[in-house]
Design a protein around this nucleic acid. Structure first.
Lengths: 131, 131
DNA sequence: GCTTGACCTTCTAGCTAGTGGAACCTCTAT
DNA sequence: ATAGAGGTTCCACTAGCTAGAAGGTCAAGC
């Protein structure tokens, strides 16, 4: 398989696939003409990576998950650890975003949004809090 | 004021303040010895930037907000536009993260997390979906 | 046989919003 | 005079790609 077909079947852009090779996530063979020659195994890995990335796992998490995936003597506890840590990060991010959202939504609804210069949003941002 | 004091009073790291000058968000004067010489106005702008960034506004949004802030003939509608777009992006991100969270939480709770290799998390990531 | 177009290759540079570190200068106190 | 705490510039690095340039390869059509 050439990169184009793998791209289509995995849903990942060719650029991304080359990048993943670059950083050592996959190691496709090469044809005589220099083209990357992917096997079904590579395709599986890429699909795996695509799904892991879609769940927000970092590349380093993905690398570890892939290693565990290929290690049939793994302990599921190791996988769960990675996932739980990631879940924690997501929860943290969610809390952060929800706080931003609340503040911002309050400001937006307080702003007239007309031709006049008075603006509670700017007023809040400019609030005297530096001494 | 030297950068150290501005840093303390604005809450921004000195590095960040230098960076903000680099990208043209502020233009502090220079003393004869080459040190940056900040006025109260610079301090206000930095505090403004700090709060805008804390609300998640991008640097480009911040640049525009700062311009509006200094333009006393602004229309609050312009400010509100920026804020609303940002709110939309936050909501989008929240939805995304909540979906990730739901999937991930389901997988985590389904995983035994013991010494055995069987793992629903890996099973899900490896699911056959590429053709 | 030649050309066209689609595909592939490598390489460099850019994106966001800074952060870390090196090498060096300046000020203040002792 | 010197130590230490500040300040300066510049370069490299982070994450995870993406864009684009310059060029090689392949299959089809004339």
């Amino acid at each position: 398989m050439n990169i184009g077909e793998v791209s289509k079947r995995s849903g990942l852009p060719a650029k991304t696939i080359r990048y993943y090779e670059d950083i050592g996530l996959i190691r496709p063979h090469r044809s005589e003409n220099g083209y990357r020659a992917f096997g079904e195994n590579d395709l599986h890995k890429l699909a795996f990576l695509g799904r892991a990335r879609a769940l927000g796992f970092s590349i380093e998490d993905c690398r570890n998950l892939l290693t565990l995936y290929e290690d049939h003597t793994r302990a599921s506890a190791d996988v769960k650890d990675i996932a739980r840590h990631h879940l924690d990060r997501i929860d943290q991010k969610l809390t952060e975003l929800q706080e931003m959202r609340a503040t911002l939504a309050g400001l937006v609804s307080a702003c007239a949004g007309d031709n006049r210069p008075d603006c509670p949003i700017l007023a809040d941002l400019a609030a005297e809090s530096c001494h």
